[in-house]
Amino acid sequence: MHIGLVIFPSRAVQDFANSWRKRLDPRYSAIQPHLTLRPGLEVDEVELSMITAHIESVTATYAPFTIHYDRTSTFYPVTNVIYLALENPQPVITLQERLCSGLLEEDGPAYVYTPHVTLGQELSSDELHDVRASISQETIDFTDRVDRIHLLYQTANGSWTAYQSFLLQG
C-alpha cells in the first residue's frame, strides 16, 4: 500500500488554492489541496499497523495549533513550483519531525522540509514568472486551526484518499 501523511486546510484555503490549481497543477484531480507531512511510501499491512500506532502516540501528545498563510512563494530555481506559504511554519515543522521517525523516517530527503500548499507545479520558467506576477495582486490572509492529520493511501488510478484521520489531543 502506498501511503502519505497530510494536513488538509480549511475550505477557504482549498477554494483559493483550487482556483489556481485547476489551471496550473497536473495533479489537481489526484488530491485535494494539502500540506504534506510525509511524502508517499510503500508499506505492508504489518508496517501500516505499526505506523498507525506511532501516529496515534504522537497525536495523543500534540496540541492543536493555528497557522497563518500570508503570501505565495516559489521553489525556483530548484523546481518550478508556486505555493501558499506560512507566516510561521515552525508548528508544522515540529509536528512533521515528531511524526517522521521510525518507519516514517525519510532516507536522506532531497529537500529541506517546507510546509506549503501547492498552487502550481511542473510549470515552465516563463509560466512560473507570469503566475507569480498575477498572484502577487491577490491578498493572502488565511488563518487555519490544525486539529487533525490524515493518513492517505493511493488508489489504483493514482488518486489519494483518506485511510484514517487522527485528532491532535495534547
Rank of each mutant, 00 (worst) to 15 (best):
residue 1 M to G: 08
residue 2 H to I: 09
residue 4 G to S: 12
residue 4 G to P: 02
residue 6 V to C: 00
residue 8 F to G: 03
residue 11 R to P: 00
residue 12 A to D: 15
residue 13 V to S: 00
residue 16 F to L: 06
residue 21 R to D: 02
residue 22 K to H: 12
residue 23 R to G: 04
residue 23 R to Y: 15
residue 24 L to A: 08
residue 25 D to S: 04
residue 29 S to L: 03
residue 33 P to L: 10
residue 33 P to H: 09
residue 35 L to I: 13
residue 39 P to Y: 10
residue 39 P to A: 14
residue 39 P to W: 14
residue 40 G to R: 08
residue 42 E to W: 08
residue 44 D to T: 01
residue 49 S to M: 02
residue 53 A to K: 07
residue 56 E to K: 12
residue 56 E to S: 14
residue 63 A to Y: 03
residue 64 P to T: 07
residue 65 F to Q: 08
residue 66 T to Y: 03
residue 67 I to Y: 04
residue 68 H to T: 09
residue 69 Y to L: 11
residue 69 Y to W: 15
residue 70 D to W: 11
residue 72 T to P: 05
residue 73 S to A: 07
residue 75 F to L: 13
residue 76 Y to D: 06
residue 78 V to L: 13
residue 85 A to Y: 02
residue 90 Q to W: 14
residue 90 Q to I: 14
residue 92 V to D: 02
residue 95 L to R: 10
residue 95 L to A: 07
residue 97 E to S: 12
residue 99 L to D: 00
residue 99 L to P: 05
residue 100 C to S: 03
residue 100 C to K: 03
residue 104 L to C: 01
residue 104 L to D: 00
residue 109 P to H: 06
residue 110 A to H: 03
residue 110 A to T: 04
residue 115 P to V: 05
residue 122 E to C: 05
residue 122 E to V: 05
residue 122 E to G: 15
residue 131 V to C: 05
residue 132 R to W: 12
residue 132 R to M: 09
residue 132 R to Y: 12
residue 139 T to E: 03
residue 139 T to K: 15
residue 139 T to H: 07
residue 143 T to M: 11
residue 144 D to R: 08
residue 145 R to L: 11
residue 150 H to Y: 07
residue 150 H to L: 11
residue 151 L to M: 08
residue 151 L to C: 03
residue 152 L to T: 05
residue 152 L to G: 11
residue 154 Q to W: 10
residue 154 Q to D: 07
residue 158 G to S: 14
residue 161 T to G: 03
residue 162 A to G: 07
residue 164 Q to K: 14
residue 165 S to M: 10
residue 165 S to K: 09
residue 167 L to W: 06
residue 168 L to Y: 07
residue 168 L to C: 13
residue 169 Q to R: 14
residue 169 Q to D: 14
residue 170 G to F: 09
residue 170 G to E: 03
